[in-house]
Amino acid sequence: MLKKTTIAMAVAVATTLTLSASAAEQQKYEIGGGLSHFLFDDDMDLNDDTGLRGLLGYRFSDRWGMELVLDKLSTETDMSGLDADVTQYFLSGLYHFNVDSNVQPYLSLGWGQGETEVGSFSNESTATNVGAGIKWFLNENFAVRPSVNHFFNTEYDEDHTTVGLTLSYLWGGASAPKPTPAPKPTDRDGDGVADASDRCGSTPSGVSVNAMGCPLDTDGDGVYDYQDKCASTAAKLKVDAKGCPVKLTDTVSIDLNVNFDSNSDVVKAQYFSEIRRVAKFLSQYQGTKAVIEGHTDTSGSAAYNKSLSQRRADSVARVLVQEMGVAQSRVSAMGYGEERPIADESTREGREANRRVVAKVSATVESMEAK
């Protein structure tokens, strides 16, 4: 029984601490009715059950009040199953907390009498009780009251607990002051997003905005819709101040740092990142084609160098198509051998500079410049 009492009181306290508050006005008089569930010690030989409750109350001040409670219960004995009627009434003093709230916890201390009738047998006793509860005001005149009370019998060792739920009508207080409305959040640009959350506080009137108060940018090109003259630009393309793609017509050369083993045309995997630059460039400039040019120095015969440079250019072109996914129609290869030197062949550095691979990308039509 003690365990049940402890749990019930803990639930009441936890509920008291977690409910939120708002302004409420105190009324002096109270009348209420509801249910009362009895939890008996095992020694009392009575089944736990639910009965009826009525109460009358008076509130002296914001914090102090008193009430008279009547509980009636029809149940049975545990052992013999005989009908049993339990009646108790008790007078309690109440101390209220959180008195400026619509949800007011309270503690109570009281004394009363009880009578148990089983057949022709009747037993009367007195008991002190401690309790806790909540007055949850639905409006100025009605309140829901969950509560728990534990009774210490002054004549016997058996105690019991009641858990009550009451609906009360209250009257006799002053008119409740209307709560002061919270200030309306400011929205200087009138876009429907409060200034405290608005990251674009000067949006022109009538412009559609997102949850952060910034104008919409449907195509994600960095130009707001209301300023965008080309509202369906592909996301990867560079745009001007009006949101329209920047056009490109120039031919662009990309030098590739791709080296080959002596007398080899096999592209090593370590150079794929270099070739990937060309693939990315082609993806950014639609309507373009790439010519992979192979060049050598003057070491060896001109005919051999011509053949070697062609094979190496073909190898780089194959990587672009097969590994990087560039369309075959956009890539071609040309070996120039030693025909187009860019440095003096009399030095080692010059010869190294002439052994090169170049990708030349040219626009076949006007294309859009990507970001």
Results as ranks from 00 to 15, higher is better:
residue 183 P to V: 11
residue 287 G to H: 09
residue 240 D to G: 05
residue 202 S to L: 12
residue 177 P to M: 15
residue 269 A to M: 03
residue 193 V to L: 08
residue 188 R to C: 10
residue 9 M to D: 01
residue 152 F to P: 04
residue 3 K to H: 01
residue 150 H to L: 02
residue 264 S to L: 09
residue 101 S to R: 14
residue 150 H to V: 04
residue 279 A to E: 01
residue 53 R to Y: 02
residue 179 P to H: 10
residue 24 A to H: 12
residue 85 D to E: 13
residue 258 V to S: 08
residue 132 A to V: 07
residue 178 K to A: 11
residue 66 M to R: 11
residue 334 M to A: 09
residue 19 L to G: 11
residue 350 G to M: 10
residue 2 L to H: 02
residue 97 F to T: 13
residue 15 T to Y: 10
residue 69 V to F: 01
residue 276 R to P: 00
residue 98 N to S: 14
residue 237 L to V: 07
residue 140 E to R: 12
residue 200 C to I: 15
residue 74 S to Q: 04
residue 32 G to A: 12
residue 57 G to R: 10
residue 328 Q to W: 07
residue 273 S to I: 02
residue 258 V to N: 10
residue 88 Q to V: 03
residue 308 L to M: 15
residue 35 L to G: 13
residue 179 P to A: 15
residue 356 R to C: 00
residue 275 I to W: 02
residue 146 P to D: 08
residue 83 D to M: 08
residue 264 S to Y: 06
residue 267 V to L: 02
residue 88 Q to G: 00
residue 270 Q to V: 07
residue 80 S to N: 14
residue 38 F to T: 00
residue 251 T to K: 08
residue 56 L to P: 03
residue 29 Y to A: 13
residue 239 V to T: 12
residue 360 K to I: 14
residue 215 P to T: 06
residue 256 L to S: 05
residue 14 A to K: 07
residue 39 L to S: 05
residue 236 K to V: 09
residue 351 R to P: 10
residue 160 H to Y: 14
residue 65 G to Q: 08
residue 144 V to Q: 10
residue 15 T to P: 05
residue 208 S to R: 08
residue 351 R to N: 10
residue 59 R to E: 11
residue 328 Q to A: 15
residue 185 P to L: 06
residue 147 S to H: 03
residue 63 R to F: 10
residue 127 A to D: 04
residue 135 K to A: 03
residue 310 Q to V: 04
residue 188 R to G: 11
residue 111 W to M: 10
residue 128 T to C: 06
residue 26 Q to F: 07
residue 101 S to W: 08
residue 352 E to W: 04
residue 154 T to E: 04
residue 65 G to Y: 14
residue 106 Y to H: 06
residue 299 S to M: 05
residue 76 E to C: 00
residue 316 V to Q: 06
residue 102 N to H: 12
residue 44 M to C: 01
residue 233 T to R: 01
residue 290 A to G: 06
residue 268 K to A: 15
residue 288 T to E: 03
residue 157 D to T: 06
residue 359 A to M: 04
residue 32 G to P: 13
residue 72 K to H: 01
residue 23 A to Y: 11
residue 260 F to L: 07
residue 347 T to Y: 09
residue 215 P to V: 13
residue 178 K to M: 05
residue 371 K to S: 06
residue 293 E to Q: 03
residue 241 A to Q: 15
residue 148 V to L: 08
residue 59 R to P: 01
residue 153 N to H: 07
